[in-house]
Design a protein around this nucleic acid. Sequence first.
DNA 1: GGTCATGGTGTAACATGTAG
DNA 2: CTACATGTTACACCATGACC
Length: 292
Amino acid sequence: MYPDIPYENLSWPVTQHAGVIERDAVEGLLHACSSCQGKKVNPETISTYFKGKGLLTANFRSDSNRDDTWRDYQQILSEFGLIYSTRICKELKLTSVAKAYLNGNLTYREMMTLQILRYQYPNGHKTKVTKKQYINGIRLRPAVLIWDVLNGLWEKGANPVLTREEMQSYVVRCIRNDDYNKCVEAIVRARSDKTKYPIIPEARRNLSDWMKVLSQTLLFKTSENGSTLGLTSYAIMEQTRIISACEKLRDEGDYWDYSSSENFQEEWFDYYGEYESNKELVFRESGGYNVQ
DNA sequence: GGTCATGGTGTAACATGTAG
DNA sequence: CTACATGTTACACCATGACC
């Protein structure tokens, strides 16, 4: 039986500013961060840095009566484990993944591929949602799930492309990575006859953002108009390696466990931002993975 | 012209800081 | 310690523009 919705408004929450991410903006944010490492971030410095570059909006705020680029866009960095959330560390703290990028050990796409593949629910960045997901048995790496579904469709001879509607009806219902087989079957069935599952309308915005986020990796790309998600030729070439990487990432032993520990958020960033122990999961742009 | 996707802005809720 | 001030996060809402 295909999963039922565990709770109302099931979705894959992600900062809605994730939709604007691309290399130059992330690089700019990280360089700006790098200059205030160990210090309290001065939002004005960040706003000034981005002024006129056309990368991110000035984000003028009437409450503070000034531009505040940092206010919204820093969430991209903490969401993907590149800085510790400033709620946890008052002084700006880059993670070792971000440092590896700034040192040139990782390219932008290599970094994003690593972090997005490892992204999981529940995680320690969100707070309220984390608990709800934990209570409802959600234990999921979205990017790994998407890979398994697309690869599964391919293996079955079906079109290895997901529409946003399919994401809303099928993919988002999965609560565990192991649900991917059922998900593939349900999609194939829905495409051939009319036994469709209802769409989850509330998940639309987050799923659109997720599709964009995934397109920042080496493995996934969206169609011209952004309405469908498919595999890159890189992913097809590296299929064997991706399968083995995803096997590891599907292993529940490797998950970060939400606990009611008061330091759970800090522990999350320690885990998610860690580079050394995850080096073997890096996919290299030049082909292959684990090649330094 | 109607519908939908998207980025940008407002703001509630919460966390933290600080004065007394 | 308490009360109030300030800062941050998370998400709702809305304006705009693309695409039928």
